[in-house]
Nucleic acid binder design. Structure first.
Length: 485
RNA sequence: GUCCCCUUCGUCUAGCCCGGCCAAGGACACCGCCCUUUCACGGCGGCGACGGGGGUUCAAAUCCCCCAGGGGACGCCA
């Protein structure tokens, strides 16, 4: 019976993955994509997705950051099945595990000070050596006066450690590169490399999917799993997202916070779709619903090379989701942006049904909700002034008769639908024997102040009879006052 | 410096594992044309890549080796 072999090959009964952000800032694009890959992997395999906050660095972790991260995940629709766990609430577990390693002789106290370490590191770098801890406290039996010790793991320097990475393939590290890394700081708090292993093991994580900046940590962690007597999980190291300058994505590259995209008027499904296609693909398909992603996602189709973040494509996707989005939903999402533009006051919410019609006229040309709100301005306020070029070109005295005729035709309408507005235009065009463009452009400038807008019939219809006529009359007066002088 | 990862159009990528279907496909951006009351949308077309060098083979983007470039790690950060 080759039972050992079979056990190795057999997939774990239940896939369990985690996303483990450190709350030292907002959720950025790279972190969000890692979360998405984990979530998708769990959902695809009918497994569990757990959220764990890695807050062992007390000096840098903040509650505000935790709130931000959770909010960003909720916005993206990444729901978790367990957690959020907080590592600061599990300190007794780490203490117990550290003591166990100490008792078993697999870890030891180290009394070297930060200053001494820093000096040795500097020297090593200068001499072109690898700056690693030399293990000098391994055999120390006596404490050192006035120094709070750290706990280090005895790491084997012999041989090599192999990683069977689901994305990178076989990766082999010479153990000579490893050093006795710190498990517990001198203040008694555990370090990342320690807690990540303890938690992943104890929480039964089957697949660790994370950024490939962690690939280098993996051999250390594997040694720790073994020292602890736990079976290492499967690893999948996802290539990082790079900025346009091909370095690690950071604040330098502009807005990288997930929530900042919401503020800029991006739809969560657009960012989701964009992020998942950065490094993962399914043939030539670009647009994916969540259901399709869950159905198709697999680690095999994750690329091995890093991806440069391309804001133009995100914008295109966002435009697509706006274009195809539900008017009612878009209208609701648009309101905060209208308020920010000063078009809608907090107290008086616009009529949603009407707003839906506004959205309908704008959704084909707006790439973001922010942009849509800006383009919607003329629906809320009559032009304060006319675009100079448009005025010169279209608001001329020759067109006065057309505009006046149009006002009277519109005034006769009971039904103010797009269709009947169009018919009113047709009557005016026939009477004066002019083409639509000679009527439409002056009208557009009169109504919106600009030479660019959605279709003339739709905006008039949506604007309403009273408002449209009043704006046309104002334009007529404006033209007259000019020609008088 | 050492170790690890990566390398197809400007960018995201398909193809690579199982060589021939690839004079390398799709998408974003860009350019042009068409549609058209403006702007968009849409349609059509164009531009544009296998990092370099050696092998192996009848045949290599695909397999092997070397080099170069890029990224990452080397913390009492995660």
């Amino acid at each position: 019976m080759s039972s050992l072999y079979e056990n190795r090959e057999k997939e774990p009964a239940m896939v369990k993955v985690r996303f483990a952000p450190s709350p030292t800032g907002y959720l950025h694009l790279g972190g969000a994509r890692t979360a998405i890959f984990n979530w998708l992997f769990a959902r695809h395999n009918g497994g569990r997705f757990i959220l764990r906050i890695e807050d062992t660095d007390k000096s840098r972790s903040t509650e505000e950051s935790i709130r931000e991260i959770l909010e960003a995940m909720e916005w993206l629709g990444l729901d978790w099945d367990e957690g959020p766990y907080r590592q600061t609430e599990r300190l007794d577990i780490y203490r117990r595990e550290a003591q166990r390693l100490l008792d078993e002789g697999k870890a030891y106290y180290c009394y070297c000070t930060t200053e001494e370490l820093e000096e040795r590191r500097k020297k090593a770098l200068e001499e072109g050596r690898m700056p690693k801890y030399d293990g000098r406290c391994r055999e120390r039996t006596e404490p050192r006066e006035g120094v709070d010790p750290v706990i280090r793991l005895k790491v084997s320097q012999e041989g090599e450690t192999e990683i069977h990475d689901l994305i990178k393939g076989e990766v082999v590290y010479p153990n000579s590169q490893l050093d006795d890394f710190i498990l517990v700081r001198s203040d008694g708090t555990p370090t990342y490399n320690f807690v990540v292993v303890v938690d992943d093991a104890l929480m039964g994580i089957t697949h660790v999917i994370r950024g490939d900046d962690h690939l280098n940590n993996t051999p250390k962690q594997i040694q720790l799993y073994r020292a602890l007597g736990y079976e290492p999980p499967q690893f999948a190291h996802v290539p990082m997202i790079l900025g346009p300058d091909r370095t690690r994505l950071s604040k330098r590259h502009g807005a990288t916070s997930v929530l900042a995209y919401r503020e800029e008027g991006y739809l969560p499904e657009a960012l989701f779709n964009f992020l998942v296609r950065l490094g993962w693909s399914h043939g030539d398909q670009e647009i994916f619903s969540k259901e399709e992603l869950i159905q198709h996602f697999s680690l095999e189709n994750v690329g091995r090379s890093p991806a440069v973040y391309n804001p133009d494509k995100l914008l295109w996707l966002n435009a697509h989701y706006i274009k195809t989005g539900d008017n009612g939903r878009l209208a609701k999402l648009l309101i905060p942006f209208l308020m920010r533009e000063g078009l809608v006051k907090e107290a008086q919410q616009p009529d949603l049904e009407w707003l839906c019609r506004v959205v309908e006229t704008l959704k084909e040309r707006a790439k973001t909700l922010k942009e849509m709100a800006q383009m919607a301005a003329f629906y809320f306020q009559a032009p304060q002034e006319y675009d100079p070029k448009g005025e010169r070109k279209f608001l001329k005295s020759q067109i006065l008769p057309y505009l006046e005729a149009l006002v009277s035709e519109l005034d006769k309408l009971n039904d103010f639908s797009e269709r009947s507005v169009e018919e009113a235009f047709n009557r005016v065009m026939e009477r004066f024997d002019v083409k639509l463009k000679h009527l439409a452009q002056p009208c557009r400038v009169a109504l919106t102040g600009k030479t660019v807008s959605p279709g003339i019939f739709e905006i008039i219809s949506v604007m309403g009879k009273e408002e449209a006529i009043s704006r046309l009359k104002r334009a007529i007066e404006h033209i007259k006052s000019k020609s008088d002088t």
